[in-house]
Each structure stands twice: as structure tokens, then as C-alpha cells.
Design a protein around this nucleic acid. Structure first.
Lengths: 196, 196
DNA sequence: CCTTTTTACGAACGTATGATCGTTTTTATA
DNA sequence: TATAAAAACGATCATACGTTCGTAAAAAGG
């Protein structure tokens, strides 16, 4: 046997990415074997290498893609907002919404950093730092205008980000808590927490 | 060669646990090989099996031990405190202090849950739930007495825990931020966030 | 229609892993 | 002091892994 009827490179790569997200999210990068992944999409293990360089490359690709999209999205969500309070609200709503919709990507992006080779990790960490900086800027401006009282901007940003990102480990879109309510709860916690 | 002079089961097991914490924290459970672990403490791989049942058992042992100690410690830290506000302050201070001192255990306890076999995981999740309940109780009592305004106790507890536990990923005891300041920042964020 | 490129197969390679086992020496017990 | 238990060695097992490669069939391009 050889090339399958109806096979297309684009489709297969998309399937690899999708299955990769799923399996890494469920079992972790190290635990996921390429044999598992190949079986999931009905392929022989070796055939994967028509579409990816290495397993490590696939992981980097998934995380990098996520980070770039994340950055573009937050900039779009914050565009045109001047008031720091409004900006903080927008940040929270965006972060939660985005993370709910991409639980797998987000989870992988933070929990599998350790599985990246140093060179790859450095690139991702730099992108993540950029994202953190968006929040830091908001906090700084809010403090400068006397709206917020913040003892340490970076620590506070880390604390807020940790809180918001935490939902990825338990939130179920079909569960008891609606998205609107989730945002309301977190917005109140954070806003009231940083207010003067 | 055979049994080494001066060898003692207790010491060796302690060394295995210590090295296990270190290696799993640094590289993850799946990535850490028993050969690595054995080499770290100057043992042949097979000799580990005089002290542990399986690799999985070692992981469970480490996490379980951590959870039991955590629960005992929080109960001690909260003992005798009646006022919910005081209790919340005590919880925050305890959680941060404990987590700073046991970054490795805490990190493993949350990030390697996925590596536990279902039966083991269920046991740990139950213990973790107990810990979460300690915070839920405080929040509930504070709300009942009109001190706190909390829309959803469990969600708020998750949010607070995520924020506090987040320090494990970045805090450096020898860094810019002192422990006292760290507690102050988080206490203010949380307390002001839940206040009426 | 013919040629090139793409995509997949299936076998295989070398390596690393968790675990087992028989043996030997040291420590503890009575 | 004699005996049992504990603890380590070193060799080995079966298995699983990421990856490579020659080959064949299907798709794409002219």
C-alpha cells in the first residue's frame, strides 16, 4: 500500500495539530507518543514525518502559534481604550473568554514550557513576557492616575494572571457557572482588589 | 559486590524521596528516569526496588505525604480563630509561607496529578478538596456575618487559591521581594477583593 | 497524457525505560 | 556467636519510543 485516496497535506497537518492539542492536554507532551497521535488520525507513525520535523517541533509550533494569536488578540481587545479602569475590565473579560475557548492551548502553553528545548523556550517566554507587560502597563497607568493602589506592579500582575488563568484547570463551559457570571466574579475580585 | 558498608534503609529511602522531589520538580515525572534518580544518590537502578514498589508508587507517596502534611498544618494555623477576617488573613499567610518553603512538593502536587493512576489520583483529589473546603468555610462564614460579599463561594475560593499558588512558578526567596512584602501584597488584593 | 511531486505505507534501527532476579555482603536479632 | 533479614550489585528482560528509509500509489502541473 501507499498514498491513500483523498489524502491532502493541509488536512493531515491540521489533524495532527488538533490531535496533538488534545493528547498533550490530556496526557502531557512526554507521555503522548507519536504512535498514539498517528493512530488517532489513522496514520502510520512514520507518515507523521511528512508533515512535522520532530515531536519537539510540533510542540513548539502549537505553543508559538498560540502565543502569537494571544498577543494579536489582546492588542485588538484593548485598542482605543484610554481609561485604565476600562482597560483592566477589558483585559479581564478578554483573558477569561479567550482562555475558556482555548483551554487546551493555554494549558499546554504554560504547563509544557518545561518540555521545550532551551532555545524554543526562550522565544516563548519572551512572548509571554510581552503579554504580561500589557497588564503591567494598565496597572501602572491606573496607579499613576490615582485610580489604583498597587504596591508592586509586577507581583500584582502575576497574582492577577495566576487567578485568571486558574480557571483553565476546572472551568466547564457546560457546567453550573455561566461565562457572564464567571467574568463578573473575577472582575469584582480583581477590580476591588486593586482599587485605591 | 553487594550490600555497601554503612548502608541503612531509612537513609536511602529519605535520599530517594529527596532526589525524587528534586528531579520531578525539575524535569517532570515522566521525564525523570529511575536511572537518573539512582545515579543521583549513588545507587544501581535495580536497588531502588528495595525501597519503593514502583515509580508510580514513589510519586503517589510524595504527593500523598505532602497533602496530609498540608492539611494538618492548615488546621493548626487556623485553630482557635473565630473571626472570618482574621481566619482569611491567617489562611493567606499560611498558604504563602508553606508554599514558599515547599515549592517542589506543591508544584508536583498540582502539576503531576495527571501522572497519577486514576485510583491514586482520586485519593489526592479528595484531600485537595478538603483543603479547598477550609477556605470555602471561611468565605461562607464571612459572608454570613456580612463581612464579605461573595457571589459564589467555590468559584471565589478557586480564584483565590489559584492566585496564591501562582507564586510557586516565579517566586525566588533570594530575589527582590521579601516574604513579608509578598504576603502583604496578596493579603491586600484578596481581602479588599472579597470585602463588602 | 505524461511527468513530477506529494503523501502514505510498513519494516526496521538504535536507544532508553521500568522492572525482575539471583547473588553477595552487611546489619540486626535472639 | 549463629541465624535471619536487609540492602546493594550487576546482568538482563520485554517493551516502547522517536526517527529513518525505500517503495508505491495518488494528486498536481504542464
Amino acid at each position: 500500500m501507499a498514498r491513500t485516496a483523498g489524502s491532502s497535506g493541509e488536512k493531515t497537518l491540521a489533524a495532527i495539530r488538533e490531535a496533538g492539542l488534545d493528547l498533550i492536554h490530556a496526557h502531557g507532551y512526554e507521555t503522548m507518543s507519536l504512535r498514539q497521535l498517528a493512530a488517532r488520525i489513522g496514520l502510520q507513525p512514520g507518515s507523521l514525518y511528512n508533515h512535522i520535523e520532530t515531536k519537539q517541533d510540533l510542540l513548539f509550533d502549537l505553543i508559538h502559534n498560540h502565543m502569537v494569536t494571544l498577543l494579536a488578540s489582546i492588542d485588538k481587545a484593548l485598542a482605543g481604550i484610554e481609561d485604565p479602569l476600562e482597560a483592566l475590565e477589558a483585559f479581564i473579560a478578554f483573558h477569561l473568554t479567550y482562555h475558556i475557548e482555548r483551554k487546551r492551548e493555554v494549558f499546554i502553553g504554560s504547563s509544557e514550557l518545561r518540555s521545550l528545548e532551551p532555545k524554543n523556550r526562550r522565544k516563548i517566554v519572551a512572548l509571554r513576557r510581552s503579554y504580561e507587560d500589557r497588564l503591567c502597563t494598565i496597572l501602572k497607568q491606573g496607579a499613576a492616575r490615582g485610580l489604583f493602589k498597587i504596591e508592586d506592579v509586577r507581583v500584582s500582575a502575576y497574582a492577577i494572571l495566576a487567578m485568571l488563568t486558574g480557571i483553565c484547570t476546572w472551568y466547564d463551559a457546560k457546567g453550573r457557572i455561566g461565562q457572564r457570571k464567571l467574568i463578573a466574579i473575577h472582575t469584582r475580585l480583581v477590580l476591588q482588589g486593586v482599587m485605591k
